[in-house]
């Protein structure tokens, strides 16, 4: 197969740009694809200009830049940036929320006395347990609704994770 010349490639790049393809990655992809198709057709005979003119309309319905519009539209639909894998989220949640209390109560249970002896310890424990309800609810919801969430947890969702499914449940009829 005869590869296209540098001038022919420059011509295609300029044409793509003229047709509104500004995203470099998309332009590289289209250029490569067009080059392959043009080279295949040139192998069967014909001149570059004519072959190129028949290949390029097969890439779009109305205008070539609709590909770029579609790419940008799909990009705009993507969710928030994801930072933690679900596995690490559970490890962290367990380490920060559950593990200290499990360790505390295990020691208290086995030695029949609190590990720490500080004033207002029971009040502190009470508040801590109360404040743990929401993170625990989050963890439980994650376990019970695995398909609702991406395997990676978005930053913003960490806080709202426990509340959002409840709002959905309360605001929708139970049976459709």
């Amino acid at each position: 197969m005869t590869p296209l010349t540098d001038e022919q490639i420059d011509h295609i790049v300029a044409d793509l740009y003229a047709h509104g393809i500004r995203l470099e990655g998309l332009r590289d992809n289209l250029l490569d694809h067009i080059c392959i198709l043009v080279e295949e057709k040139l192998e069967a005979g014909g001149d570059f200009e004519r072959v190129y003119a028949t290949v390029i309309p097969t890439f779009y319905r109305r205008e070539l830049y609709e590909l770029e519009e579609e790419a940008l539209f799909l990009e705009s639909l993507r969710g928030p940036h994801l930072v933690l894998s679900r596995g690490w989220f559970f490890v962290l949640a367990f380490a920060l929320v559950l593990a200290p209390w499990l360790a505390f109560f295990a020691q208290w249970f086995f030695f029949e006395r609190p590990v720490i002896n500080i004033p207002y310890a029971l009040d502190a424990i009470g508040w801590a347990v109360a404040l743990d309800v929401y993170p625990l609810l989050t963890v439980i919801i994650l376990f019970l609704t695995p398909n609702r969430f991406d395997p990676l947890i978005p930053w913003g969702s960490k806080i709202l994770l426990g509340l959002k499914p409840l709002i959905r449940v309360l605001s929708q009829p139970a049976i459709i």
Partner: peptide, 11 residues
């Protein structure tokens, strides 16, 4: 089609 594939790859 190329019109569907490349926007998807970009996304």
């Amino acid at each position: 089609t190329e019109g569907a594939l490349y926007p998807t790859l970009h996304s």
